Computed example of a mutant assay.
Amino acid sequence: MRRVAATLAAATVALGAGLLVNPTPAAAHGATMFPGSRQYLCWEDGMQDDGQISPTNPACAAAVQQSGTTPLYNWFGNLNSQNNGGTVGSIPDGTICSGGNQGPYDFSPYSDMRDDWPRTNLNAGQTYEFTHNNWAHHPGNFDVYVTQQGWDQSELRWADLELIHTEWDPPQQGDTGGLGYYYWDVTLPADRSGYHMIFVHWVRSDSPEDFFSCSDVVLS
């Protein structure tokens, strides 16, 4: 817990520095913090003391090379403002992690399937407290998906994903506009092992705007 607190404290300082460098972030709204989503962990990996973003993780660095640092300064802004909860038929396979590439920033490289994204080690069958940033507060639900055992890792498809949990209007910890978060418990399937993707789809109930987070995990 001390390590987590220290990390969050350092990230808070870095976040403030980042907003000085990029002073006009989107009116955007959150991403999964645990298990860490690609956009959140790449921001955390890349943020420097002077507010610049320079990731060392190879996948994060490649994403920055393709779409720049603006998406990471706005790591909470991976959204589709007109998706209205759509899944199959609304968000094409292969673009699920970036919400169909319809947001204000280019998160398209965060849908790339490669084996060097930051990963979180979890235990199958265990219950974890998921946390999702509340940069801005909105009512709605969080749908949590996990890939099927034996899924085709060349592309993330809706057919690969199993909906395992839906949480409506969870409680919050901390202030909006920073590193505050929603939190709720999720029990992972016991019949999974190895590399998997956890996809969290935040669906607003007061707007057609949706938010997207993919987290790379290893299940033991």
Rank of each mutant, 00 (worst) to 15 (best):
R2G: 14
V4L: 15
A5P: 07
T7I: 13
L8W: 14
V13P: 08
G16K: 12
L19W: 12
L20Q: 15
V21N: 08
N22V: 03
P23L: 09
H29C: 15
T32S: 09
M33R: 13
F34V: 07
F34H: 00
P35E: 01
P35H: 03
P35T: 05
P35N: 05
P35A: 08
S37G: 09
R38V: 01
Q39T: 14
L41F: 09
W43Y: 09
E44S: 09
G46Y: 03
D49W: 10
D49M: 08
G51W: 13
Q52R: 09
I53E: 05
I53T: 04
S54Q: 12
S54F: 04
P55C: 07
T56C: 02
T56A: 07
N57G: 04
A62T: 05
V64D: 02
V64I: 14
S67Y: 10
S67I: 07
G68S: 12
T69Q: 02
Y73I: 09
N74E: 05
W75H: 09
N78Q: 02
S81T: 01
N84G: 09
T87S: 10
V88N: 13
G89C: 00
I91F: 02
T95V: 07
I96M: 08
G100M: 05
N101P: 01
N101T: 09
Q102D: 13
Q102P: 06
G103I: 09
P104M: 12
Y110L: 15
S111K: 10
D112G: 01
D112P: 01
D112C: 02
M113P: 08
R114Q: 14
D115T: 04
N121R: 15
L122M: 06
F130D: 03
T131S: 07
H132Q: 12
A136V: 11
H137N: 08
P139F: 01
G140H: 01
V146L: 11
V146H: 07
W151Q: 08
Q153G: 06
S154C: 01
S154F: 07
L156F: 00
R157M: 05
A159F: 05
A159L: 05
A159G: 15
E162Q: 15
E162I: 13
L163Y: 00
I164G: 06
H165D: 08
T166I: 04
E167Y: 05
W168K: 13
D169K: 00
D169Q: 01
P171F: 09
D175I: 02
G177V: 08
G178M: 04
Y183G: 10
V186G: 01
V186S: 01
V186Q: 01
T187C: 02
L188Q: 04
P189Y: 14
D191Y: 00
R192E: 01
G194Y: 03
G194S: 12
G194Q: 03
Y195V: 13
H196V: 00
I198A: 00
F199N: 07
V200Q: 11
H201I: 13
W202D: 05
S205H: 10
S205K: 08
D206A: 04
P208W: 04
P208E: 04
D210N: 10
F211C: 00
F211S: 06
C214Q: 13
S215V: 12
V217Q: 06
L219M: 15
